[in-house]
């Protein structure tokens, strides 16, 4: 049912030498902005932290949706479970954030492997429905087990110790910001390496033509299961960041709407580019934040409108604007090179 999509160039190796400079700039810029933001925007660091959490979440979705071509609407399950795992761990076992974070990663990763093993042999709409059923089931579980999760009041009463016993989570959110940035950077390096490995290339192949990949001997199901588990663990990590930085976990972190939002972010930024998640999440969050001030429901208009326009006219997401721009520039240059 999926049509073979064209292979997009993977920066930077495949780019022409002229744009090598641009590629370097592209790599440095997001991190420079993130580090600069820490010093400039002292008052609004919590917004920055939120954005990075969503970036990580969208990045995890890019691995399965963008690279492996797994169309899911159930990704919020792993995000929410990671958040609840981190929150419950800090309440019942230990308030140490790093151990709690690892616990959350393991729990959501295992959940990803178990649900993935059950449903990954299906494709298309059936798979989509199974992911919907999964996320709805987990949502209802969170809603019903009030004694454990606090139901729709959310999970309260978390205590979070200072990181390494030194850096306390203060009200200015400096620790939370750096914590989120470091975690995001580690996961980014990991994903970059993974997607440029033979494993990552095989996922690319599976997305384009899974039958042919099977025919040349790729264990398709195992590859998909592996990336599904990894992506789930990563989403859980984003959830843990959310729990630790806000000391609260809301039921909405498990909702279908959350799955929808993260998909919107990724598509808006552009899939299969890793940095697409950065642009998409940041722009989505800022638009939502500023339009919600005008009217609390206005952002839904904007987001819905952006989605419709992106699908109809801008299939590669906002990251494609750069490519379109570069193509225009190079065309302009070629023309000026003429005698």
């Amino acid at each position: 049912m999926t049509k073979p999509s064209s292979t997009t160039t993977l920066a930077p190796a495949a780019l022409a030498p002229i744009s090598k400079l641009w590629a370097t700039v592209g790599h440095v810029l997001p991190w420079a902005i993130a580090i600069g933001f820490f010093f400039v925007a002292e008052g609004s660091l919590s917004i920055g932290t939120q954005i990075m959490i969503w970036i990580l979440f969208a990045l995890s979705l890019d691995l399965i949706l963008g690279y492996a071509g797994i169309v899911t609407l159930g990704h919020a399950a792993f995000f929410g479970v990671g958040a609840y795992a981190a929150g419950l761990f800090s309440i019942h076992f230990s308030p140490d954030p790093l151990i709690g974070h690892i616990f959350a990663i393991v729990v959501s990763g295992l959940l990803g492997l178990v649900t993935g093993a059950l449903i990954l042999h299906t494709t298309g709409v059936t798979f989509l429905m199974l992911t919907l059923a999964t996320v709805s089931l987990i949502f209802e579980f969170g809603n019903q087990t009030r004694w454990l999760t606090g139901g729709d009041d959310g999970l309260q009463g978390m205590r979070v110790d200072p990181i390494f016993g030194m850096f306390e989570f203060n009200i200015f959110g400096q620790t939370a910001y750096v914590y989120a940035l470091v975690v995001l950077f580690i996961w980014f390096l990991f994903s970059w390496r993974l997607m440029h490995s033979p494993f990552g290339r095989s996922l690319d192949g599976i997305r384009q033509n899974s039958r042919r990949m099977r025919a040349i001997g790729t264990p398709v199901w195992w590859r998909l299961l592996a990336i599904y588990g990894i992506s789930a663990a990563m989403a859980g990590s984003a959830g843990a960041l959310l729990a630790h930085s806000t000391r609260f976990v809301g039921l909405s972190s498990l909702s279908l709407l959350t799955s929808g939002i993260v998909t919107v972010m990724l598509i808006l930024g552009g899939t299969r580019k890793l940095y697409g998640a950065f642009i998409g999440a940041a722009i989505y969050y800022l638009v939502q934040d500023s339009t919600a001030k005008i009217n609390p429901h206005f952002w839904e208009f904007i987001v819905g409108g952006m989605l419709i326009i992106t699908v109809l006219f801008l299939e590669g997401g906002l990251m494609d604007l750069g490519r379109i721009g570069r193509r225009l520039i190079s065309r302009f240059r070629q023309r000026s090179d003429l005698p």
Binding site: V264, H297, F301, V303, L307, I308
Partner: peptide
């Protein structure tokens, strides 16, 4: 994606 976009717009 597009149909979810329509859902958002109609909800708003």
């Amino acid at each position: 994606l597009l149909t979810i976009g329509i859902v958002f717009v109609s909800t708003a």
